[in-house]
């Protein structure tokens, strides 16, 4: 008997969710029809992004936030993203450890994901996973990622409220500015605020906010929350900041605007990804890609005309696309 995953997910089956997420990670085509069925049931969850350098305490913050949310009766989904090794393709996913208090709570679903080092792949899968957990009925979805690299910035773009976590002593402000993470913060968290340099860091962040002309124009000044997550200090205030930002987005109409932007990006990206995947897979299948690469290397051809040649083959000869043209 063929299983109806969409129905199972809507009925609350964590196993069906788990399998669908695996298919999304694997880019398994079985996922897409299910996603189509789930899509009408999405758009209800509120999405929080938590990003910051390794060792900033993201998982501990997430753990304590979950506790507050659960006390408030909210259900929670967590996507914790860690990098895959570019050399072996494997990954060590350790974020569950600090959330183990919630691991048997049926209203909390935690999923660890590896980036799998594929162009845009992580962003794509994460975006889909958020939808799955949304359709699954989670009130809040937390995306936890290391904030380095464009891909992660992309992911944060998925969030309604993005928290950027900084800690004293890591040179975080400069690093984060370089990585382009400072711009995307809706809420700043200065974690491990009992450490030397916390006040300094606080000043730096505030100065940064002062200077940023875009922030002044936006109508929302990101609050800077001090926390010591491991001792559960400052967590309630952080949660209030997130709620305030949510209220701001909803009351100002920005939430709709933000999601329109996201949908625009996402739709384009999906088309891009799927085209890319189809072409890549077909070219790789019969070894043609390798041959092309060799020829390009030997300067028998160039990559520019190769690109045009392939594209024209696809756009002209595939009936589906011919029709579209």
């Amino acid at each position: 008997m063929k299983r109806d995953y969409a129905k199972e997910i809507l009925a609350g089956s964590p196993q069906a969710v788990a399998r669908l997420i695996s298919w999304l990670e694997d880019e398994d085509e079985r996922a897409y029809s299910i996603m189509e069925e789930l899509y009408p049931h999405t758009g209800r969850a509120y999405v929080i992004g938590i990003t910051g350098s390794p060792g900033a305490g993201k998982s501990t913050l997430t753990d304590k936030l979950i506790r507050i949310m659960r006390k408030g009766g909210l259900t929670v989904g967590v996507v914790a993203v860690d990098p895959s090794s570019p050399f072996t393709g494997g990954a060590l996913l350790g974020d569950r450890i600090r959330m183990s208090d919630h691991s048997t709570d049926p209203e909390v679903y935690i999923r660890s994901m590896a980036t799998r080092g594929f162009l845009g792949g992580m962003a794509k899968a994460t975006c889909d996973v958020v939808k799955v957990l949304d359709a699954f009925g989670k009130d809040i979805i937390i995306i936890e990622t290391v904030g380095v690299g464009q891909d992660e910035v992309d992911i944060v773009g998925l969030a309604d409220t993005t928290c950027v976590v900084l800690v004293p002593g890591l040179g975080d402000v400069i690093q984060s500015m370089k990585a382009g993470v400072m711009e995307i913060a809706d809420v700043y968290v200065v974690n491990k605020a009992d450490r030397d340099g916390a006040d300094q860091l606080n000043m730096e962040v505030n100065a940064r906010i002062e200077q940023d002309i875009h922030i002044k124009m936006s109508g929302w000044v990101p609050p800077v929350n001090k926390t010591i997550a491991v001792d559960n200090v400052g967590m309630q205030d952080l949660w209030e900041s997130i709620l305030k930002h949510r209220a701001f987005l909803e009351e100002s109409g920005r939430l709709v605007e933000k999601r329109r932007k996201q949908t625009y990006q996402e739709t384009l990206r999906m088309i891009h990804n799927e085209l890319f995947r189809l072409i890549r897979d077909q070219l790789s299948e019969d070894g043609r890609l390798d041959r092309l690469v060799e020829e390009i290397l030997e300067r028998k051809r160039d990559p520019y005309s190769t690109m045009r040649e392939i594209l024209s083959e696809w756009l002209d000869s595939t009936p589906k696309y011919k029709e579209a043209l």
Binding site: G55, S59, T60, D63, L92, G94, I97, R98, S100, V230, D231, N232
Partner: peptide, 10 residues
């Protein structure tokens, strides 16, 4: 005091 949850460095 709360409970300790280690950061695992594998």
């Amino acid at each position: 005091y709360g409970q300790y949850r280690p950061k695992e460095f594998v």
